[in-house]
């Protein structure tokens, strides 16, 4: 299983299900954010990427056709500039859990974005996100599960 080659096709399948005109906002242009934004842009999605650091956008595909917004996502002005008012999806994936939690909540409560998903590293905080009805993806839990699965499959086989 190679996620590099597997990713885009899987993404294509997923994207076929969703409204193709919907705008996506990705907050946090680290390796993960940049990869996702690039893939979305490649399949013709309208994407806006937000990062407080201009240099972070170097991680995007060279032919990335979406918008780039430089700024601190805890500021309403920055989110407004990113077009959160019209966005159908908000993906919050900075390196900082508390920032993700705040931006996700603002996305829901202030901008009424229909679909909000946030990345959370610390599994202890996941229950808190759930209390606020925010969907989360935890790289820590996912990786742990993947490692466990591999180990058990190998060991048990």
């Amino acid at each position: 299983m190679n996620p590099e080659s597997d990713g885009p096709e899987a993404l294509q399948d997923v994207l076929r299900l969703a409204d193709p005109t919907a705008t996506l906002v990705v907050v946090g242009c680290g390796r993960l954010g940049a990869m996702l934004a690039s893939q979305l842009s490649r399949v013709g999605r309208e994407v806006v990427v937000v990062d407080r650091n201009q240099a972070a956008f170097a991680l995007l595909d060279v032919d990335f056709s979406g918008f780039q917004v430089v700024g601190d996502a805890t500021e309403l002005e920055v989110l407004r500039e990113a077009g959160l008012e019209r966005a159908a999806y908000l993906l919050v994936m900075t390196e900082k859990d508390t920032l993700n939690l705040m931006v996700a909540q603002v996305g829901r409560q202030v901008f009424s974005v229909p679909q909000v998903v946030a990345r959370v590293y610390d599994p202890q905080r996941e229950s808190l996100y759930r209390a606020f009805d925010i969907e989360t993806i935890s790289p820590t839990s996912l990786t742990a599960a993947a490692f466990l699965q591999r180990t058990l499959v190998k060991g048990g086989g």
Binding site: T98, L99, M102, V103, Q105, R125, A131, F132
Partner: peptide, 16 residues
């Protein structure tokens, strides 16, 4: 000095 941290602290204190 970080709004996101202050919000998280308050929400954890309230919710949990």
């Amino acid at each position: 000095p970080h709004d996101e941290d202050n919000l998280a602290i308050c929400q954890i204190a309230r919710q949990m």
